[in-house]
Design a protein around this nucleic acid. Structure first.
Lengths: 174, 174
DNA sequence: CGCAATTCCTCCGTATACTGTCAATTACTG
DNA sequence: CAGTAATTGACAGTATACGGAGGAATTGCG
């Protein structure tokens, strides 16, 4: 039974204890590695809960953004969900291919393509909402309520800083 | 000046306040979204600090794993850094292409290819170590020492659970 | 020893994810 | 109003990320 979206086997205990004659800084407990693992887990949990709906986390985010802001173009949707335009362009193309959104040219500005949720898109969103809720809850399930709150706040702190300092280091050398 | 790895513009304040007539669950503050943003920031910071070294986070992780465990094969390296075999296979191929590692057949077991760090690989690792340290520090820079510790522990808690419950939900239905 | 199960790598297919570039179009400026 | 700047979507290129198929090689079991 192959199942969907594994997560990897991970054999750290053994490996870290044994080999490791090099830097001995333990790359596996550094923020970068942990964050990557976290994202891995989040995607996996989402895929597990939403299995059968044929939807990915990014596609879901884009779909919600289109639903809540009908009439926007791809560039603005991308800014909303914090993606670059190319990625969002591909995602929207797939969503259109699946008949979940509609793209129409704008008579006022022939550069842009107006986005709108289709009937099927709306149905899919409401269909998989419980699953998404479960997924979001499960991601932080190992934490207590207090830890969960603290954790979310810390993530927001990091993200807020990144929003204000988009480029150079914290030592604002322009 | 185009610069490397932006992060996106993000225009939430305006958008969340204005459109949003739909579910009103605020997808943008859910764990999944925040974790994705965090990973985005981590990758961006790494790229900024390591610019000029022509190395990505994953390539760095693989390189360190090979350095600390010479003689392992791709499958075991993948388990070490928590990636699936296909991805690691591609990464190692690129690393070999850049002359940072060497892949040799194993006479004892002709299925496997033994991995070893090359001279250039070792040099690159020691060259970019300070940059990597800076990157790791900068990721959690917005947090106080206490918050940083709490944050890392919470990430480890989530990851530990995922390691023990690889498949089904927390309600361990095998 | 023969053969099934396993293991390892490779390739394919899909989906992110981002940079850079381009053409078409619109906005701006003198 | 002409020339330029800015914007938008599309595209190319690179690098993750993961599941699954397939072939070569090894192991284990009878």
């Amino acid at each position: 039974m192959p199942s969907e979206t594994q997560i990897c086997d991970s054999m750290h205990e053994a490996a870290v204890r044994d080999g490791a004659q090099g830097g001995m800084d333990d790359v596996y407990s550094k923020p970068g590695h942990l964050i990557r693992r976290l994202q891995q887990i989040a995607v996996s949990v989402f895929a597990q809960e939403c299995a059968g709906h044929d939807i990915t986390p990014v596609q879901y985010a884009a779909l919600v953004a289109v639903r809540d802001n009908p009439g926007l173009d791809a560039t603005r949707i991308a800014a909303l969900i914090d993606f670059d335009r190319s990625t969002v362009g591909n995602v929207l193309e797939r969503l259109e291919g699946k008949g979940l959104i509609e793209r129409r040219a704008n008579p006022q500005d022939r550069r842009v393509k107006i986005l709108k949720l289709s009937r099927r898109g709306a149905k899919l969103l409401s269909d998989c909402e419980p699953a998404v809720q479960r997924a979001q809850a499960r991601m932080l399930d190992p934490l207590s309520a207090a830890q969960r709150n603290e954790f979310l706040n810390n993530m927001r702190r990091i993200i807020a800083r990144a929003d204000n300092v988009p480029k150079g280091g914290p030592n604002g050398a322009s």
